[in-house]
Simulated assay, not measured.
Amino acid sequence: MSAMPHDPSTLEKPVPPPAMPQSAPPVARSVRDHRIDAMRGVALLMMFVDHIPQNLLNRFTMRNIGFADAAEIFVLLAGYASWLAYGRGFRKYGVAVCLGRIFRRCVQLYIGQTIMVMVYVITVRAWRHYTLVPVDFLEPELAHGLSWVWRVMMFDALPSNLNILPLYIILLGGFPLFYVLMRIHRSLALLLSGALWMLVNLDPGLNLPNWLDPDGWYFNPFAWQFLFALGASASAETERRGADFPRLDILAGCCVLYLVFSALQAFPWAQWGLPDLRPFGTMIMPEKSWLSPLRLLDVMAIFYLVQSSAAARKWAAESRTGQLLARVGRHSLEIFVVGTVLDLYARLLFSTFGDGWLLQIVVNVAGLSILFALAAWLDGYRKRQRATRPA
């Protein structure tokens, strides 16, 4: 390069230092979808209410205004959250690390199941020394001796109201296989999952054995895995798109019409002393155990309407109510375990002292307050733990 002409005016000017390379802009972190947490919180609270048969509040839960109930919401969102937690983890942390995380979560679920079973058996056995306990509170096989322990611990026996965590463990344990199928082809994963679900609906006898029930697991895992797979697939699709599901007016309209039909058909008109407005009065209610198609359509319609709604996203993220529910949903295992134990004590109180209005109010206010307070404490504890970690 040729020298520049000599110019005295330029000799004394300092040469500016070379520009420092600009640091790369920070990668935008994914924004948490509080709708998932809020929906899961609603499902957990409804499960607490629904599992108390004498509770008048369960007349207002979603099982009375549709074919599906909180269990379908819970399993669908479990699949959605599993993809967020582990589907991306396989790529980010590697197979060994992610398999370890899945195993640890299954152990946590197993511990939660063990705690609930032990509390149920010990409480009912102690309570019946003072007053009669209805037989449906605890299967007769669990009411005497210890021969049941290994069966319960091996999931060969699933007590009533304590059968959804074993399902979750099975589904989560099978998630790596579903992930492999998703990597091969997403349509293949859903096709195989849907085919197995359809096979169970054609032959409900295809089930895992249950020592306490000749019909097998109440939540047939071969059927319910399809709902879990749909949730995981929806999560993967949302991640791929980087946006919510598109709001298609015709699809949203079909969902609303179906939910109206579901509400009219499932509503307990006689229980409320109202004229029967069921479109098909003699129709058998869709079976929950093997997840009948009508129940599946019900929960998927709800899910689409919520997940395609920007207003729902804003409500869950910004409103006080939405954040309270989301806080409950963020700690699903702990809330579910405590809520299930509270259900037992509520049922025992109602069976012992009656189900009058005063006790109804005390049980519901106390129970829901405990769950909200537990969620607040767990949320604060988690924030304190994160604050002490190195950046």
Score class of each variant (00 low, 15 high):
Leu142Asn: 04
Leu349Lys: 08
Leu76Asp: 00
Val31Met: 10
Val337Ser: 02
Ala252Val: 08
Ile122His: 03
Gly231Tyr: 01
Asp379Trp: 01
Arg63Ser: 15
Leu84Glu: 12
Gly100Thr: 10
Thr340Lys: 07
Leu162Arg: 06
Leu374Arg: 05
Gly194Glu: 06
Ala387Leu: 08
Arg128Phe: 01
Tyr120Phe: 13
Val306Gly: 00
Pro53Arg: 14
Arg105Leu: 05
Ala19Gly: 06
Gly100Cys: 08
Val124Trp: 07
Ser369Ile: 09
Ser9Asp: 13
Gly194Val: 07
Trp127Asn: 04
Thr282Tyr: 01
Leu342Asn: 08
Gly173Met: 07
Val107Gln: 05
Leu368Gly: 08
Leu274Ala: 13
Glu12Trp: 05
Phe350Glu: 04
Leu165Gln: 01
Gly281Pro: 05
Thr321Glu: 03
Asn207Cys: 07
Asp249Glu: 10
Ala38Trp: 04
Val338Gln: 07
Tyr345Ser: 10
Ala373Val: 04
Ser82Met: 14
Val95Pro: 00
Leu348Trp: 03
Ser262Val: 06
Leu171Lys: 09
Arg101Asn: 13
Asp249Pro: 01
Met20Tyr: 06
Ala43Asn: 04
Gly66Tyr: 09
Val337Lys: 06
Phe103Trp: 14
Ala24Ser: 13
Pro390Cys: 00
Met283Gln: 12
Arg327Cys: 13
Trp211Leu: 09
Leu212Trp: 00
Leu99Pro: 01
Thr123Ala: 15
Ser308Ile: 00
Cys98Gln: 15
Gly281Ser: 09
Met62Lys: 01
Leu374Met: 12
Arg63Cys: 05
Leu11Glu: 15
Gly231Leu: 07
Leu257Trp: 09
Trp290Leu: 04
Val180Gln: 10
Tyr130Ile: 12
Asn64Cys: 10
Val180Ala: 13
Arg278Ala: 09
Lys13Ile: 15
Leu264Ala: 12
Arg186Asn: 09
His331Ser: 06
Asp276Pro: 04
Phe226Gln: 09
Ile111Asp: 08
Leu45Arg: 07
Gly100Ala: 06
Leu291Glu: 05
Ala234Ile: 07
Trp377Asn: 04
Gln307Gly: 04
His331Arg: 10
Glu334His: 12
Ile164Tyr: 11
Ile52Leu: 05
Val42Glu: 00
Gln225Met: 11
Leu188Ile: 11
Gly205Arg: 14
Val341Arg: 08
Arg327Asp: 12
Leu227Pro: 05
Ile184Asn: 03
Asn220Pro: 02
Gln113Met: 14
His331Asp: 01
Ile65Trp: 11
Leu84Gly: 12
Gln108Ile: 00
Pro134Asn: 13
Arg295Asp: 02
Leu371Ala: 04
Phe175Tyr: 15
Leu132Met: 11
Leu296Cys: 01
Ile164Val: 15
Phe261Ser: 02
Phe245Met: 11
Asp33Gln: 05
His129Tyr: 05
Phe353Leu: 14
Tyr93Arg: 15
Leu190Met: 12
Leu56Cys: 01
Tyr168Ile: 15
Asn163Ser: 13
Arg386Asn: 06
Gln225Phe: 00
His331Gly: 00
Ala68Glu: 05
Val124Leu: 13
Pro8Gly: 14
Arg382Ile: 00
Asn161Gly: 00
Phe103Gly: 13
Thr388Ala: 14
Ala312Ser: 12
Ala157Gly: 08
His144Lys: 14
Pro221His: 13
Ile284Val: 15
Asn207Pro: 02
Gly354Trp: 02
Ala189Leu: 04
